[in-house]
Simulated scan of single mutants.
Amino acid sequence: MASMALQLSLAAILLLLSKVSTVEAVAAWAVTDWGDAHATFYGGQDASGTMGGACGYGNLYSVGYGVSTAALSYAMFNKGLTCGACYELVCKLEGSKYCYPGKSITITATNSCPPGSEGGWCDPPKLHFDLSYPMFQKLAQPVGGVIPIKYKRVACAKSGGVRFTIHGNPYFNYILVHNVAGAGDVSALAIKGEKTGWYYMSQNWGQFWSASANVVGQALSFKITLGNGVSTEFSNVAPKDWKFGQTFEADNNFK
């Protein structure tokens, strides 16, 4: 009986360790429970310096993200695959006298905060959000400079459908995906002409995806898979007379 009890105890311990390992294995950019990080700000009081960036979105106002954005540290950027993800942030009152109590913000990841910047706060393995100035000042007094925060992934609320901006040439498709709701972060993209099958694209950089396929003169459909594994098709997004440089909006989005 004692031997049986010992075996059961060991089994319970192994199960517990397995669960702990599973929790610890969740990537920093994917946590849906509160995690610890720090935040700074960049881009000036008008956030003009936050335009462009490592996700490829360009003018953040024209693509709908505005100033509710952040650059993520190397440990969270995930080589651009976290672009488009949304996070809720709160300032830790017990960690800084500059925090505003009861305040929280929701931001979209639109840029990378590279190693060596912001005094090393973005160096691996640190978890860090470099916020636009307008968003930082909603959490804390800017004089605080660096603040401790709690953060977690949340669903992105976007207006309208997913948008696709088509670049490239007849033999090289170069697609920017933006205004993505739900999990927000695109992990895979496929393109299909009305006369072709699916061409699976490769991440080029940020949220630019590329594939060598001649689909000029064909109506285009797309298939997106998000970082959480949810996949949706967007049919006939671009008409057959589409041109390079144009942006097309799907009739649907993720939830």
Results as ranks from 00 to 15, higher is better:
104 S>H: 13
54 A>E: 12
80 G>A: 05
112 S>P: 00
214 N>F: 01
129 F>P: 12
160 G>H: 06
202 S>W: 04
194 E>R: 05
255 K>G: 10
168 G>K: 03
212 S>T: 10
192 K>Q: 14
240 K>R: 10
169 N>W: 11
44 G>S: 11
170 P>W: 04
146 V>K: 14
254 F>I: 01
186 V>N: 01
84 G>F: 05
229 G>M: 05
133 Y>H: 15
136 F>V: 04
214 N>Q: 03
217 G>W: 07
141 Q>G: 03
46 D>I: 01
227 G>M: 02
240 K>M: 03
19 K>I: 14
138 K>P: 03
120 G>P: 14
219 A>H: 02
9 S>C: 10
223 K>V: 06
89 L>R: 11
245 G>A: 05
83 C>L: 06
105 I>D: 10
174 Y>A: 00
102 G>H: 12
154 V>P: 13
52 G>N: 10
96 S>I: 09
71 A>S: 14
251 D>E: 13
63 V>A: 09
137 Q>T: 13
238 A>D: 10
67 V>T: 15
102 G>Y: 12
201 M>F: 09
95 G>S: 14
122 C>V: 05
30 A>L: 09
21 S>V: 14
37 A>Y: 07
36 D>R: 14
40 T>L: 08
203 Q>H: 10
178 H>C: 00
122 C>S: 15
93 L>H: 07
213 A>F: 02
56 G>N: 01
249 E>Q: 13
149 I>N: 07
117 S>C: 02
36 D>M: 10
197 G>K: 03
74 Y>L: 07
203 Q>E: 08
98 Y>Q: 13
60 L>I: 02
250 A>P: 09
111 N>L: 00
194 E>S: 15
207 Q>F: 00
197 G>A: 01
2 A>H: 14
84 G>C: 10
10 L>E: 15
137 Q>D: 11
17 L>H: 11
34 W>E: 15
139 L>D: 10
124 P>E: 09
80 G>Q: 05
132 S>T: 12
99 C>V: 08
165 T>I: 00
185 D>F: 01
103 K>F: 08
188 A>R: 14
205 W>I: 01
176 L>Q: 12
126 K>C: 00
27 A>W: 08
171 Y>E: 13
214 N>G: 02
236 N>L: 02
157 A>E: 13
123 D>V: 04
47 A>P: 08
173 N>D: 07
145 G>M: 10
134 P>E: 05
217 G>N: 07
222 F>Y: 15
122 C>M: 06
2 A>L: 14
95 G>Y: 10
10 L>W: 13
123 D>K: 07
228 N>W: 06
47 A>Y: 09
152 K>V: 04
75 A>Q: 15
167 H>F: 07
214 N>A: 00
129 F>Y: 12
53 G>H: 08
138 K>E: 15
18 S>W: 11
211 A>F: 02
167 H>A: 05
22 T>K: 13
149 I>Y: 06
112 S>Q: 14
73 S>V: 08
123 D>H: 09
57 Y>C: 01
78 N>H: 11
215 V>L: 13
85 A>N: 10
181 A>V: 05
82 T>K: 00
252 N>F: 08
122 C>Q: 08
9 S>D: 12
215 V>C: 04
110 T>N: 05
231 S>G: 04
238 A>E: 11
254 F>T: 03
214 N>W: 01
181 A>R: 06
183 A>Y: 14
221 S>D: 09
49 G>T: 09
85 A>T: 13
190 A>W: 06
